[in-house]
């Protein structure tokens, strides 16, 4: 029962704050948008805690809310745009397509979840699930090869970023 209440609170909060990132009263100002995105990450982190994925929850806060969003806020503050520079908000085709895509994904997700059958026994997590040891076992034993592949992909991205940043503008 408590879990149900917490889930609805967290899920509702996550969706509400995520919508606030782009919707006019708050999303008009990029800094407010970024702040509500941070709040949204916290709600998602709470959802991870409900799923017993503790490491994921902490990493969500550490990486997204703590590191990436600080960079976002840094850039927004550096530009420090005034209301005049931000201009009037207007409806574009890209926004329309975005709304369509989000609704399609939402409908599909609801269909998949409601059609899912299976007993609770199947959904029970192993002992040690979501702990540091459990996650390390998954990453470094069971899925070592995909993990290394992702690492190389990230390394390539880092090198690409450095090359782009170092390019002399002529």
């Amino acid at each position: 029962m408590l879990e149900q209440i917490l889930f609805w609170l967290l899920a509702g909060g996550a969706i509400l704050t995520a919508a606030m990132v782009v919707l006019p009263p708050v999303g008009r100002n990029p800094l407010y948008g970024a702040l509500s995105l941070i709040l949204s990450f916290f709600f998602i982190s709470g959802l991870y805690v409900l799923l017993v994925a503790h490491v994921m929850a902490v990493l969500q806060v550490l990486v997204y809310a703590g590191a990436i969003m600080v960079l976002f806020i840094f850039v927004i503050m550096l530009l420090n745009l005034s209301d005049k520079e931000l201009g009037q908000s207007r409806k574009t085709t890209a926004q329309f397509i975005g709304v369509l895509a989000v609704s399609a994904i939402a409908v599909k997700a609801i269909m998949v979840v409601s059609s899912a059958t299976g007993s609770k026994a199947l959904m029970a997590a192993d002992a040690g699930f979501g702990t540091v040891d459990g996650l390390a076992d998954l990453l470094f034993r069971q899925f070592l090869f995909p993990f290394e592949l992702v690492s190389i992909l990230l390394l390539v991205a880092v090198i690409g970023a450095v090359v782009l940043a170092k390019r002399r503008l002529t």
């Binding site: 941070i38 490491v55 902490v58 990493l59 550490l62 703590g66 600080v70 503050m77 702990t131 540091v132």
Partner: peptide, 19 residues
Amino acid sequence: NVGIIFIFAIASMSVYGAT
């Protein structure tokens, strides 16, 4: 269980107050 990683996560939040 996450121990000190929790401290890092929380410490990374402390920058927001100042900024």
